[in-house]
Design a protein around this nucleic acid. Structure first.
Length: 318
DNA sequence: AAAATTTGACCAAC
DNA sequence: GTTGGTCAAATTTT
């Protein structure tokens, strides 16, 4: 079994991403040429990169490494393990969640507006018990390339077929080139479109809210959970709520949904029904179970530069 | 050829 | 046993 400087490699991957972003921010820092939103977005991504890196280091440093054994493994195996890791370590569970209601109004031109500026990749659809419409699952397109863990799911409301419930999980730590342009466009539209009502996002940290200081190994620098600065302008600039800072549409840009008829127009607030189901005590207690994992053999192909592999390798060889 | 979606299978958690 | 969430092969789209 070859020994590779894997933890470094992993964290470097993430941090390098953060550095790129920071560099970008540096050049765009001039307020006269760059909007506040752009800077905010960059800062958010940088912070998320830190989050990821710190999470990785926390995993590594916590003796969470299983003893690796011989065997064969493929990428699929790695990916499954990755998901499991995310699950076990509460990386997913602790991610900030918030929801939005999107009301679509017919007549509006469709596809182009079914776009929140983020690049989503649909990875599943599920019929939900008691619901009239299926739920579609999306993850950030840049998950593998940049380690962005943001996901969302979208579901048409039972009571009002013109409303979609969108539940987000996790901040984007990726670069989203389209976002800025998209926001600007939406902003213009909202000035001329009277249909736009209010946009309120509701995060669900109020219930079962762990003290942020209670985060030992997972504590993230400025905002442990990260809800607070997912979209800072929502809190610091309330007057911007109605603008396109968050657009009504959350469907995949290139996707014409199989069951969603398009044309988003206005957004309503929405109180998420369920609470964050895990607190940090649980996370810590969850640190142990992962240890009885045995990973397969080790092969780092040179072309294999995706985040998940790095994470797994990091854990394997820490 | 590459990227995104569809859809049944799979799996952990009730 | 269900159920909600994810995976991944097949398929479609670009």
């Amino acid at each position: 079994m070859e020994k590779v400087g894997v933890p470094e490699k992993t964290v470097i991957t993430v941090l390098a991403e953060g550095k790129k972003l920071a560099n970008e921010l540096k050049w765009k820092l001039d307020p006269s040429t760059t909007s506040r939103e752009t800077c905010d977005a960059l800062v958010d991504s940088i912070l998320s990169a830190y989050d990821n890196a710190i999470t990785l280091l926390a995993l590594i440093g916590d003796g969470a490494s299983p003893t690796s054994e011989e065997g064969s493994h493929h990428n699929s195996k790695k990916r499954k393990l990755f998901s499991l890791l995310l699950l076990n370590f509460g990386v997913l569970k602790t991610m900030p969640r918030w929801s939005e209601h999107v009301r679509i109004c017919s007549g509006e031109r469709g596809e182009a507006q079914l776009d929140d500026g983020y690049n989503w990749r649909k990875y599943g659809q599920k019929d939900i018990l008691g619901a009239n419409h299926p739920r579609a699952y999306y993850r950030c397109t840049h998950r593998n390339t940049q380690g962005c863990l943001a996901t969302k799911h979208v579901q048409r409301a039972d009571e009002d077929a013109t409303v979609f419930e969108v539940i987000y999980r996790g901040k984007h730590s990726c670069r989203q080139e389209r976002l800025r342009q998209h926001k600007e466009r939406k902003e213009q539209e909202s000035l001329t479109c009277s249909n736009v009502s209010s946009l309120v996002k509701t995060e669900n940290r109020d219930l079962n809210d762990p003290k942020e200081e209670d985060l030992p190994t997972f504590s993230f620098p400025s905002t442990p959970i990260g809800c607070e600065n997912v979209e800072p302008q929502f809190f610091s600039e309330p007057h911007r709520l109605i603008t396109a800072s968050y657009s009504p549409s959350f469907l995949s840009p290139t996707t014409s949904e199989s069951y969603f008829s398009p044309s988003p127009c206005l957004v309503n607030d929405f109180d998420i029904g369920h609470s964050l189901e895990s607190d940090f005590g649980e996370i810590i207690s969850n640190l142990t179970p992962i240890t009885d994992f045995s990973l397969g053999d080790f092969d780092i192909s040179i072309d294999e530069v995706d985040f998940e592999s790095h994470l797994l390798d990091a854990i394997e060889f820490s």
